[in-house]
Design a protein around this nucleic acid. Structure first.
Lengths: 241, 241
DNA sequence: GCGCGATATTGCTCTGGCGCAAACTTCGGG
DNA sequence: CCCGAAGTTTGCGCCAGAGCAATATCGCGC
């Protein structure tokens, strides 16, 4: 029972270093020995950008910790449109259906960049909750945070204009995943106009028009799949509308 | 410490009957003795229709069980618009901020009808979770269900036309709270065009126009604050768009 | 260095549904 | 029974933003 030999796609690396987890909230109160146990039970896997971690509706057989990269949580409508519900940065748990009493994943998780993910079988969930101090609390905090975000999105969708929504979305991405660069802050993973439109419930055309307009005014600079915010404050003003 | 003497508005009734809770999921696995303890710690209160149970941003000092009535969970935007996030029917917990690691309520809860609500101080939350078998599980199921609903709303807002959203909203209300009446199914609490518009992110005018149109076609009948669905199937067809 | 597919830009048209305004209906209270 | 407040209906004009379409650009693989 010490090593998973059955799943070729998911590879248990020779030795996962304990420092991978020690500073992450759900595990930060644990002792080295406990972390070791947790790591020995984990599978690790690398995903290409655009890879699928799990699909909406699948039985929730595993839960995940995103070690590196970014994951988009999307739902797909009957007509094939995608709606992005959430962006998850490195260091957070995902696929925690068990935490909310679900047997299946409520949405699809795909990587927005190359990503490294640890995972454990859902059967270990209850053990984690029971044995590891702070794990449950931190998990539910994450959950609470996500519920808050979803709430915010609902309010935004319900009341704001497209321009404000796009501005807000970009600001949120900057806050979560911004990287300081020469002349501004950049979203540090590749994101297309299409992606942004799925995030803000509009079309890629409208997003493109908005970005062009902002670029003319010097608020942002953007290349293919890259967006840099030069004047965050002006964007904030826009987003308040 | 046996009785709350400080809060005149919240009245501990002489004797709450155990049958109030025994059939409700979070408590259904408990023994009579435990239920008695829980009830003795509870305050009960009756709200008028339109009363406020708690406000967004308030410290989450209590958690609640809606015994009778309906509660709308709303958020209010900086500009004063209301957006309804959720409808909660009798028999469910609300104000369970503690469950998701929050110190304040994320939204405002107001009664849609006259309602009866039990409540407990949040300090008892951990005790409930620890001592009462099934309480945590059921709570998180409720939470999961609500997350699912929020997700659905996001997708709806993002992809559907107003007509479909309104149809969906009515169908959901019918499913949750429908009462069979002569000639159809009626939403069994008073709901205005305004309420519906806050639920579907549109204006009361548009809702009114839609309902008028549907009434002409025989799909629904509506009076002031009352909506009866005569042909649910046709509404379903509409809602798929 | 070339070619192709993915991504982005931009112009034009058309319309769902919002905003405004006015009138009407229902209900509860005095 | 009447009045006023709350809720509803309906008409009209307008515009944000979707849809469509054509073109431009980027960057990767060969």
């Amino acid at each position: 029972m010490t090593r998973a030999m059955t799943e070729p796609a998911r590879k248990t690396l020779p030795r996962l270093d304990e420092s991978l987890l020690t500073h992450l909230p759900p595990f930060s109160r644990l002792e080295k020995r406990q972390i070791r146990t947790i790591l020995d039970q984990a599978s690790s896997r690398r995903y290409e950008s655009g890879g699928t971690v799990f699909n909406e509706g699948d039985p929730a057989e595993r839960f995940y910790m995103l070690l590196d990269g970014y994951v988009r949580v999307v739902r797909i409508t009957p007509t094939g449109e995608q709606v992005t519900a959430l962006h998850i940065p490195a260091g957070q748990l995902l696929g925690i259906a068990k935490a909310i009493g679900r047997e299946t994943y409520p949405a699809t998780a795909m990587t927005a960049t190359e990503s490294i993910v640890l995972s454990w079988p859902t059967s270990l969930w209850d053990t984690f909750v029971a044995e590891y101090d702070g794990f449950a609390t931190e998990t539910y905090k994450t959950l609470g945070h996500r519920v808050g975000e979803m709430n915010t999105r609902i309010v935004e969708l319900a009341t704001q204009q497209v321009e404000q929504r796009v501005a807000n979305a970009i600001l949120r991405l900057i806050n979560q995943t911004g990287r300081k660069v020469e002349g501004g802050i950049e979203i540090d993973f590749p994101i297309t106009r299409q992606d942004l439109s799925e995030l803000t419930a509009t079309t890629l055309h409208t997003v493109s028009r908005l970005l062009s307009g902002w670029e003319k005014r010097g608020l942002v600079e953007s290349k293919r799949k890259r967006i840099k915010v030069c004047d965050p404050h002006a964007l904030v003003v826009l987003s308040q509308g």
